[in-house]
Simulated assay, not measured.
Amino acid sequence: MKNKVIGRGKFYVIGKGPAGPQMATLQALNMIEQMDAIVAPDNDVKLFAEYVGEKPVLFDPWEGFWNYEGKQMLDLTEDEMEKFRIKRFNLRDERVNTIKEFLIQGKDVALLDAGNPCFFGPSHWYVEQFDQQDIVIIPGMGCEAAALAALGKSIIPSYDTRFVMQTAPLYLEGWEQILKDLNQYPVSIVAYMTLSNPKKLFAGLEKLYPTDMPCAIVYWAGYPDKQRVIRGTVADMGQKLSEDEENHMGLLFIGRFLNGKPYEAAMKQQ
């Protein structure tokens, strides 16, 4: 049951998993059904239509979030980027006010966020504008869980690996030096948002890792009709990714765990 203050609604962020209802938790599906209004893009509304029902959909939270005047965020000039920032903040504030009006009326609003909303979760663009008492976050399965299931390997323990690093190249200023330092230790890497310039990424990785270091990319993890895996090495993965038509939905894995029997090897070493 929902735990809410009488007379005031709450803003729910519901982690819906990496795909449709088949990858969502029972808690997530139950909470979607209980909401008074939904914030979600059209595709998610269609995927979860059975649970959304006739509830009003207030807006698509990501419309205007990643692009400006028909151009993707990464392709903007410095002047366009400045204008984009102003427009995006103003748009965010307008939408937050819309949600708050519903909460004042005692209605509960849910934003459907992909995967795990607290890991690379853009929903916090909205969450941080509310009082903590007005927020409820429903956890969801991240795409890395679905992707690792597709790979069928233990990322840790595996061989002598000591930890797993989850990041994205665009969040690592001077990432080549960071990876050079980390390369002193046995580490497996899960990298998000790596498809924009794979040749450049792997040109840097080739300077740090043996050319036979295994890699894999899982496209559309968790989507039964779209999921696929491409395997390779640091030496050839950049070329493989640059030749693939998909340039958005892919999760990259790098590490020895992709070969052999990594869990058994770890047990023997222990």
Rank of each mutant, 00 (worst) to 15 (best):
I38M: 02
F48Q: 09
K2N: 13
R85K: 13
M213A: 01
Y263F: 10
I137N: 07
A37T: 01
C118G: 12
P214I: 05
D44F: 13
V39K: 08
L76C: 06
K107L: 08
L47E: 08
G255H: 02
M81I: 06
P186D: 01
R228H: 12
Q177K: 15
F163Y: 13
G106Q: 08
K16I: 15
D75V: 11
T194N: 08
Q177N: 15
M73T: 13
T98W: 10
T25R: 12
Y185R: 08
G17F: 07
I38E: 02
V109T: 13
D236M: 11
K83F: 00
N97P: 00
D134H: 11
A265V: 00
D181R: 11
F84R: 07
N97V: 07
E82K: 15
V127I: 15
G174H: 08
Y159E: 01
G9V: 09
N67P: 01
I178C: 10
M213H: 03
D75Y: 14
E246S: 06
E94S: 11
P262G: 03
V136A: 05
V218T: 10
Q166V: 14
E264W: 00
G53Y: 11
L251D: 01
A216Y: 03
M23V: 12
T194Y: 07
D160F: 05
E50S: 13
E128V: 12
I217P: 01
V229H: 05
I14E: 04
S158N: 08
D113A: 15
I14M: 07
E80C: 03
P117Y: 14
T77I: 04
V229E: 02
I254F: 00
G106I: 11
F102M: 14
R92L: 14
E33V: 02
F163R: 10
K240D: 14
K107I: 03
P214H: 05
V39C: 11
K71L: 11
M193H: 09
A40S: 14
Y263H: 04
Q27D: 06
F59T: 09
D113W: 04
N259C: 08
N3D: 15
L170K: 12
P186W: 02
G250M: 02
K10R: 14
G9I: 10
V164D: 02
K207G: 04
M73P: 00
E173H: 13
Y209T: 06
N67T: 10
I32V: 13
E243W: 06
K240E: 14
Y12T: 04
I254E: 01
Q269E: 01
C215Y: 00
I156P: 00
Y192H: 15
Q184G: 08
I189D: 00
L258N: 02
T167P: 03
I254N: 00
E243P: 02
V229A: 08
G142Y: 05
G115M: 09
K268S: 03
E206A: 12
E50W: 10
K71E: 04
P198A: 10
G17W: 09
G64H: 03
